[in-house]
Amino acid sequence: MIFLKLILTVFLSAWVMFIGLLYKGIDRKIAARLQARFGPPIIQPFYDVIKLLQKENIVPENAVPWIFNGAPWLALLASISLFFYQPMGSLPPILGDRGDIILILYVFTVAAIAIVAGGFASGSPFATVGAQREMVLLMSYEFPLATAIIALAWYYSKTFSDLPAFSLYTYVLKPIWSHVGPLGFLGMLLIMLTILVVAPAELGKIPFDIAEAETEIAEGVMVEYSGKNYALFYIADGVKTLAMTALVVNMFFPWNLSSFFGLSGVGAYLLDFIFFWVKVLALLLISVTLVRVAFARLKVDQIARFYWFPLLLTSMVGLLLVVCDKLV
């Protein structure tokens, strides 16, 4: 059993890296079409990675080499491991019994911390500013995100006392929307909105791409990275984007096609697996691509204010509505 899991882990890692780069290409193409450009070919990210892997890997003189070189690996491994705890379609998570949504949140933070550490270790003022911004960003969105997750978990713990309330697989087996009342429905909509708004910040995309901010601090935390290290960050970014959207899909859009078609066995798993990735792509295009072409980059204080007040309020109201729904 352990051996099977090991093989599955390896396959899954390769698969998410592949899909991460592919979806990155689709995202770039669609964004380009929305901006009235032609855009690069869809497989451009693969070319980019191949090229980057051939390039010289420069470590700046005043960098801290072991952190500087270790951070990209940490970011990539953290991003990939996020998928070991996520169900895909009707497939249960590979390590579902070892970790739940709280672990996933922590691993997301680890990926962000890896970027911060890499930035601080670069020894460049631009990277320092970028790393500071990434930390502020992290502190800004964690609270609303935690509130939203707690609301969800609390609701499940009250509704299904026999199932683990923090497990993503529970959310997939029992879709939230079919179990809430009207108040809870409204509350859950607000919670979903909160998580969707947190997603671009978690992923460092416009309007929250302050840690990189090309025109301001010249790619910030990434400024000193090149060659292999940068390629690792590049793949990690693609995988992390997938993981975040997959999380939202699992939490709020867990429906599967197999029961609809009355399939069972391998066919059902396969169909649901494919449908899962279609859902991830659709959500990615809506919550990342559309948002990043529609807005300008915000400033760090504006972002902090936005997350701490309006968005925290939204998630709190959502939590309150969910509680009311259960208690009334």
Binding site: L34, Q35, A36, R37, I206, P207, D209, A213, E214, T215, V293, A294, F295, A296, R297
Partner: peptide, 16 residues
């Protein structure tokens, strides 16, 4: 100006 504040869509459309 749009590009400087990260508003690349406006940048592309205006230059078009």
């Amino acid at each position: 100006a749009a590009h400087e504040v990260g508003f690349d869509s406006a940048f592309m459309l205006l230059w078009k």
